[in-house]
Design a binder for these strands. Structure first.
Lengths: 330, 330
DNA sequence: GCACTTTACACAAACGTTTGCAATGCCTTT
DNA sequence: AAAGGCATTGCAAACGTTTGTGTAAAGTGC
């Protein structure tokens, strides 16, 4: 139904090849006169290019796909913004797919819809791919890069913050304020990211000569409810004077539950969030955070995929952002 | 480089046509024996279908595109979840594009990347299309539907809440609690949605016999900063006892700024949010809200596109969700 | 006016599929 | 044994582009 290059050719009285060259603006391949004719015909027919067909013959595409693990993770937004901005600079288009939360079936669906189509490269935002899906991805021979997640067991390109440093610096920040009994809430220990954060935390505590009590580390999945659960586990008489939320959401969970348990924040209890997204500024008191540069991760992700040969694993910087949820102890 | 149907054909010793039929599992068109052979060959070569090529010949696609107006709007998530769920049920794939905030150039980019490719239909989440982009969309002849936005001037399919009712019921809720001086903060009056909310608000006030003071309506773009600005404009001695935030974000802006102005919420000031997303539960006090059923909008959106002939404009229900930010006046 | 280059275009193959049609061979039926 | 039916498969066209090659006409230099 839609007009094709052939319709234009017929209307303008030239060959399809010529139309293609005019529309692609291959200068030097057609006269002023035919250029005019073709463009007029195209406009008259309301021509829309069928890029899929073009990609079929050129065997290349200018779309990069971003697969994100959940609609709920709030840090995906700045990463995507970074991707969009940098993609724009390289004249690439971005499509986004949601892969659900650790649902390997949904992951597979998202993955195949992009693999089966001509996409130039794939960015995976914080998605922990099931083993069979990783093989699928690797077999596709499409360049890819993980963002905001790291691995130790497998050798794949990724860009993320130094999670060990995240844990270490968070803990150091609180130690410097005189805190000794410091909790770590909502962190998961199943994946590399969480393990690294815990390791950084432990190292900082050890250097300060403090023995970490087992109950100080409350595991979870970084969610709001994980933060709530952690705080309930600490209880009203935890003896803690500071808590690190393993994510912003976890920190908010800690904050709200601590309040309902009777803590005043930051007077009785300091809270330090990890991530530093928008949500830190929305709650009161605004949460101080070890902030990741998510935007930069997105930018670096598409750069890495545009300039192969670069080293495949990159670390983006983190920094402490002071807001209102920390207070010196004693 | 990647294996094609021809490679499989060669390896299995059959024709490409047969391979296609086996892989598409067209029963009755091939023998058990060749089925085995072909599948084995496909597996051996790690074959990945080129769906773009297939879509070229069949002239149809199973992907629906969702275009969202910004990475920042927090209600996009539940809509997308609804879309995904319903799309899955119809065996469709979903891709998401970001169109930026009222940036007609970015809109055009997003639009053309989907129009130029075989997509079955397009869902536009809360995006207010520039006139020329609407024409582009309409000329493409791809079925589309707007979500969470409505129009009066133009005749297009959309699914959203009844924004007049939103404004009316929000105001009624506060009136019933005995409030008289009620503000409306952060609403925009440039588009249909905002105008309707204001109209509903005015009607409810008028029915209660209250004259709306001009400064009670503070315009804005539904953002956190719009809420802040509105509350600063009201000031510490506003005379208001209740404020409707035009969105969750605006309501949070109002909340935080009110606090810093010395108001206690809800003791001195009741706040009612519009939207009812997750954020209402994260702040303290948790914000009561007139909640929209965003998930349902997503579901209805893909249903509408799967069953043409349905009426093109649909209203999803709203409801009051009581949390902790409202209090009886006097 | 000849050989040569340049310009401007048409032609056709190719990309990886799907699918209508034709062809083959076997099995029934009469 | 001829005719018809059916199961299985191959062949080739088609989808909408891009692009290398071929070629006629026009321009250039001597």
């Amino acid at each position: 139904m839609a007009a094709t290059i052939k319709d234009i050719a017929k209307l303008a009285g030239v060959s399809p090849g010529t139309v293609s060259r005019v529309l692609a603006n291959k200068v030097g391949f057609f006269s002023e006169h035919t250029g005019e004719k073709v463009r007029a015909a195209a406009a008259e027919l309301g021509y829309q290019k069928n890029t899929a067909a073009a990609e079929l013959v050129t065997q290349q595409s200018n779309v990069v796909a971003a697969i994100v693990n959940s609609t709920k993770t709030n840090f995906a937004s700045p990463i995507i913004e970074g991707i969009q901005a940098e993609a724009h600079r390289h004249d690439l288009n971005v499509i986004i797919l949601y892969a659900g939360d650790d649902d390997s079936e949904q992951q597979r669906r998202a993955l195949t819809t992009v693999i089966e189509r001509p996409v130039r490269s794939i960015l995976l935002l914080s998605v922990d791919l099931a083993a069979e899906n990783l093989t699928l991805l690797q077999n596709s021979r499409i360049p890819f890069c993980f963002l905001s997640i790291s691995f130790d067991e497998i050798q794949v390109p990724y860009i993320t913050s130094d999670d060990w440093q995240v844990g270490y610096q968070a803990t150091q920040t609180l130690l410097k304020l005189g805190h000794q009994n410091i909790g770590l809430a909502g962190v998961d220990s199943d994946f590399h990211t969480g393990r690294q954060r815990v390791a950084g935390y432990r190292q900082a505590m050890q250097e300060a000569g403090i023995t970490v009590q087992p109950e100080w580390i409350q595991l979870g999945n970084y969610s709001y409810t994980a933060g709530q659960a952690a705080m309930r586990a600490y209880g009203a008489n935890s003896g803690l004077t500071a808590i690190i939320g393993a994510s912003d959401m976890a920190a908010v969970g800690v904050l709200n539950t601590a309040r309902s348990l009777g803590y005043r924040v930051p007077t009785d209890l300091s809270i330090l969030a990890i991530d530093g997204t928008e949500i830190c500024e929305l709650v009161q008191p605004a949460l101080s955070s070890i902030s990741q540069n998510f935007y930069e991760m997105g930018v670096a992700g598409v750069q890495q995929l545009c300039a192969p040969g670069e080293l495949p694993q990159k670390i983006t910087p983190i920094k402490l952002v002071e807001r209102d949820s920390l207070q010196r102890n004693g």
